[in-house]
């Protein structure tokens, strides 16, 4: 319970800080919504031309985009510190102040930074999933499971990328690029992938956990695939935390103690 209160306070402080610049805060949220809707509109025009893309309708695409954007948004809202911020801390040897706190380093750093643009993503995600027409009361629990799995996948990728500086020097910029590459790949209709590409995206590079499997499961439910999705997401996340903890042993302090908020 204490841990939860600690993380909650960290997030609260981050938002207080972000909200100090009220106009910037609102601008980021609104522009992120506009940003997402613009891209969706381009796809809408494409679907007007082709009606379906390998059996996927625009509604399927809307659901997928909603899921991608919503699950992605959890990272900037709650764990923005994981990723580029954490990589820079490791690179500069400035992680010491987090290491002395009796809390998990990963989540302490993660919750210490927030990005209001995530709220824009969150709102867009909820709206898109709701208006996709695929969600009903009966499949709502399943949709929550997809969201949970998506969050696990995005966190996994972020954590794995954050461990790069432990093993490769000056890799923070590379890591940042890698993460956005992953996010961009997740933004295309999952129906276009088949064969080896689908296999890669559903195993090694689990983009398919967000952009392929959920929509397929919404149309043709399979208990085995559903269980695979959930169990594999949890395993991926656990593995990434384990790899981070292993990497942490290789951390080299820069002997620079900073006071963090």
């Amino acid at each position: 319970m204490d841990k939860l209160i600690y993380y909650q306070q960290l997030i609260k402080t981050g938002y207080k800080q972000a909200f100090a610049l009220k106009k910037v805060f609102i601008l980021r949220v609104l522009f992120m919504i506009l940003n997402n809707l613009m891209l969706l509109y381009a796809w809408h025009l494409m679907f007007l031309n082709f009606s379906t893309i390998h059996s996927w309708t625009f509604n399927d695409f809307m659901f997928m985009t909603g899921l991608v954007v919503l699950t992605f948004s959890i990272w900037p809202i709650f764990f923005r510190g994981i990723g580029i911020h954490l990589m820079r801390l490791i690179e500069n040897g400035e992680l010491d102040s987090f290491l002395v706190i009796p809390r998990h380093v990963l989540f302490s750093v993660g919750c210490s930074v927030c990005d209001p643009s995530g709220i824009g993503d969150f709102i867009t995600g909820i709206l898109l999933i709701f208006f996709s027409g695929l969600v009903s009361l009966s499949n709502l629990p399943m949709v929550f499971c997809f969201i949970f799995s998506g969050i696990c996948v995005f966190l996994t990728i972020n954590i794995l990328i954050s461990t790069l500086p432990f093993f490769i020097k000056n890799s923070s910029d590379i890591g940042e690029r890698l993460f956005y590459m992953f996010f961009n790949i997740a933004g295309y209709p999952g129906s276009i992938y088949s064969g080896y590409l689908k296999l890669i995206f559903c195993t090694l590079l689990p983009v398919g956990f967000i952009s392929i499997l959920p929509v397929e499961l919404m149309h043709n439910f399979s208990g085995t695939v559903f269980m695979f999705l959930i169990v594999a997401s949890i395993c991926f996340l656990s593995l990434s935390i384990f790899i981070f903890s292993y990497g942490l042993k290789k951390y080299e302090s820069g002997n620079r103690f900073n006071i963090h908020h």
Partner: peptide, 16 residues
């Protein structure tokens, strides 16, 4: 103050 949101929109204009 923070013009990054405008950069996102310009990027999306380039896409769309």
């Amino acid at each position: 103050y923070d013009p990054l949101p405008f950069f996102w929109i310009v990027q999306k204009c380039e896409y769309v």
